[in-house]
């Protein structure tokens, strides 16, 4: 391998890591909800779509940027509490699989509603971020990707601080640890779940803006849930750290595989490569890299 090939490989790797951060961003939304309520929320992708679509439609109608952001956030809060009220509360104490299937139904509702309200056309979203690549030591790096990564990192730091140093974060962790015990000491689960779903809605908004600016705001945005799932499986459903590391691993290896493995099998492997990778890891570690191994209580 000569010097330029090596540089190219590094460039691919860096590009992969940066897009991996974008995967992590979506995956974190899942982890928040899974940790506190044991639900694998398939609707996270449609929440990303809903948030981005609401925001971009407001901006297009002349609402100022900041106000649009605020209104969208308010909508996501309302959505979070509505979901808690109408879907989660009636299904309390049901099996995780039932809850998962309910979120599948939820994703259909949110996707349908988002497009029924705002239409099905593709919207461009300009966040005013300059996307000219710049060069570091012979490697081209997209400045948009870098900024997106920085935002994601800031959000992870913010969420961690929130989780580990605020009172409400403490209750989150208590609920995540043991729902029944949390209930017994008088924590109000509905309020906590409402808050968690709101937080997940906020994460969805950030992810929706960044992904929307990258891909355009359209229906396919909700399909990023399919990108996030292998990340979750790899990292473990209940670990924020796992979501980040999983995203980086999947982003990087996916890009490397596409460039170096793809040509041998006819390309287009990004649809399943992440899943295959996640499966291989799972066969060695059935709860993902950072997932909690549960000792079966019998």
């Amino acid at each position: 391998m000569n010097y330029y090939d090596f540089l190219f490989a590094i460039e691919v790797l860096v590009g992969g890591l940066l897009s991996g951060v974008m995967y992590s961003l979506v995956a974190i939304g899942f982890v928040l909800i899974y940790k506190t309520s044991g639900v694998l929320n398939f609707a996270q992708g449609s929440m990303v779509l809903f948030a981005a679509l609401t925001f971009v439609s407001l901006v297009e109608r002349g609402v100022p940027f900041a106000l649009s952001l605020l209104v969208t956030l308010a909508v996501m809060v309302a959505l979070g509490f509505t979901i808690e009220r109408t879907v989660l509360r009636p299904l309390v104490n049901r099996s995780p699989m039932t809850l998962f299937m309910a979120t599948l139904g939820l994703s259909y509702i949110i996707e349908g509603a988002a497009q029924l309200i705002w239409g099905t056309q593709v919207h461009g979203l300009d966040l005013g971020i300059d996307d000219t690549p710049f060069e570091v030591g012979g490697i081209l790096i997209s400045s948009f990707d870098l900024l997106a990564a920085a935002i994601a990192a800031a959000m992870v730091a913010g969420l961690s601080a929130f989780f580990y140093s605020t009172r409400i974060g403490l209750t989150f962790r208590a609920v995540a640890d043991d729902q029944f015990a949390a209930l017994a000491v008088g924590l109000r689960l509905p309020r906590i779940w409402g808050t968690v779903w709101t937080t997940a809605g906020f994460v969805a908004l950030v992810a929706g803006l960044l992904w929307g600016a990258r891909l355009g705001v359209q229906f396919s945005l909700s399909l990023i849930v399919l990108k996030a799932l292998p990340v979750l499986v790899l990292g473990g459903f209940d670990s924020i750290l796992g979501a980040i590391v999983g995203g980086l691993i999947i982003g990087a290896s996916e890009k490397l595989a596409e460039v170096y493995l793809g040509p041998f099998v006819g390309g287009g492997i990004e649809g399943w490569f992440a899943y295959a990778l996640a499966l291989v890891v799972l066969l060695v570690r059935p709860s993902g890299l950072f997932g909690q191994k549960t000792v079966e209580r019998v």
Binding site: L229, P230, V233, A278, L282
Partner: peptide, 8 residues
């Protein structure tokens, strides 16, 4: 974990 692997 199994459900996701069937997506593969």
């Amino acid at each position: 974990y199994l459900a996701v692997s069937t997506l593969a």
